[in-house]
Design a protein around this nucleic acid. Structure first.
Length: 171
DNA sequence: AAAGTGATCATG
DNA sequence: ATGATCACTTTG
């Protein structure tokens, strides 16, 4: 069981997203308790070349953290109700990210953040050094199903059709 | 099938 | 300043 290092998060989001499947998301709560769950579903968002990405139209107040070096959290409120948790990936200046859509015990991006108590205060949290939110690797390497991404009807058709949603088989 | 909810961004 | 738009969940 080892904590994921910096080089891992420097991968492009389309490489990082499938590799995050099987990794273990870990959260230490205020009372000291720790919750861990294996990641089973992710999507990648490829920055300036991807019309589905928040970073497609350049840097804004909301998405500026995506332009940082990989390994920090991008959290934002969706539909007024749900926080969505992304892991920024790639080098600085390359605004890519991986949306965590599901873990064992909490499927659905809004449910993941609720399960882990992730809210806007985690915006920019550095998973490489944080002691309240981090990722471990126990060597598991699940088989992967490739699907289209969800909820991006505003994007160009070519981007809607990319198989950038990654789901672990046999959980 | 459709509401519920509020930050965010583009427009004026 | 205002309004349309959302990387969704739950309920009926």
């Amino acid at each position: 069981m080892k904590r994921i290092n910096e080089n891992f998060f420097k991968l492009s989001a389309n490489e990082l997203a499938p590799k995050l499947l099987g990794k273990i998301l870990c959260r230490r709560f205020d009372d000291g308790s720790v919750r861990k769950a294996r990641i089973i579903e992710t999507e990648c968002y490829m920055g300036e070349i991807d019309s589905a990405s928040h970073a497609y139209k350049g840097k804004t107040e909301r998405n500026k953290i995506m332009f940082e070096r990989g390994g920090v959290a991008y959290v934002y409120l969706c539909y007024g109700i749900h926080f969505l948790f992304n892991i920024v990936s790639g080098e600085a200046g390359s605004p890519e990210g991986v949306l965590i859509r599901g873990v064992e015990g909490a499927v659905g991006p809004g449910n993941v953040t609720r399960y882990f108590g992730i809210d806007k205060t985690f915006y920019g949290e550095d998973l490489k050094i944080s002691n309240i939110l981090w990722i471990e690797d126990d060597g598991a390497q699940p088989q992967i199903n490739y699907k289209k991404r969800i909820g991006i009807n505003y994007a160009k058709e070519i981007d809607q059709n990319r198989l950038w949603r990654f789901i672990a088989k046999d959980i």
